[in-house]
């Protein structure tokens, strides 16, 4: 059985819809990973021990086990406790939390690297510790850690492929649907890979632009 890429155009709509879902998953999970990363970082550094230690334990657990396993746990685990989430929601939460843990590590380092004078500057004006953290410290920590966080978002894009295993119709799953009709895995997986590569390049370009824009404000 030779290769025949002429089968691809017929399924282009399906592939494009899959690509849209991949982008959607990346954006939503990326946002969760960023918000969660900030939240976890702030709790890990400033939180009461009653929340700090559970968060640290959760982070340790999520960093030491495979994402795929975590996705199964969230998807089937929530069903077990009576929450039947659509696969998309479960996938996005799983991906988002997984990368939130990694982002939290980076953001913690970023927060610790912000000059002590910044806290003093804020507190002297009468801002509370909380106001100082979220208005002054966290924005600077985020700006200074944009490159590694950007790398994590790119890793998240690639790992979004894993949610296909819980049945979200993103790029990989869309390709599998096409393959089940045509029995041409090579052609469709290559097509999907090209799509990922293109999205990856676009994402990198966007991240670089954001980094450049942030340069002046540091």
């Amino acid at each position: 059985m030779g290769l025949d890429f002429n089968v691809v155009p017929e399924f282009l709509d399906l592939i494009l819809i899959g690509a849209m879902w991949t982008i959607a998953i990346t954006l939503v999970a990326g946002a969760i990973s960023l918000g969660g990363g900030v939240l976890f970082a702030v709790i890990a550094l400033y939180g009461h021990w009653l929340v700090r230690y559970p968060i640290k334990f959760f982070a340790w657990l999520f960093m030491g086990t495979p994402l795929l396993l975590q996705l199964f746990l969230i998807y089937f685990g929530l069903v077990q406790v009576g929450i039947d989430l659509p696969a998309f929601v479960a996938g996005v939460i799983g991906l988002g939390l997984h990368f939130a843990v990694y982002n939290s590590d980076i953001i913690q380092a970023g927060i610790l690297a912000v000059d002590k004078g910044q806290t003093e500057g804020g507190r002297t004006l009468g801002l509370s510790q909380f106001q100082t953290i979220y208005k002054i410290i966290v924005p600077q920590a985020l700006r200074n850690t944009l490159p590694p966080i950007g790398n994590n978002i790119i890793a998240l894009l690639k790992d979004s492929a894993l949610v296909s295993v819980i049945g979200v119709t993103e790029l990989i799953h869309a390709s599998q649907l096409a393959i089940s009709e045509t029995f041409r895995p090579f052609e469709f997986y290559i097509t999907a890979a090209v799509c990922y590569y293109a999205i990856n390049l676009a994402l990198e370009a966007i991240l670089r632009k954001i980094e450049n824009n942030a340069q002046i404000a540091r």
Binding site: D115, G121, T124
Partner: peptide, 21 residues
């Protein structure tokens, strides 16, 4: 203290301006 600090202005050796603003 947050209330009182609003009434006590302070200027530092290293300015402590917020670079992201």
């Amino acid at each position: 203290i947050n209330k009182l600090r609003q009434e006590i202005g302070m200027v530092f050796q290293h300015f402590n301006l917020f670079p992201h603003l």
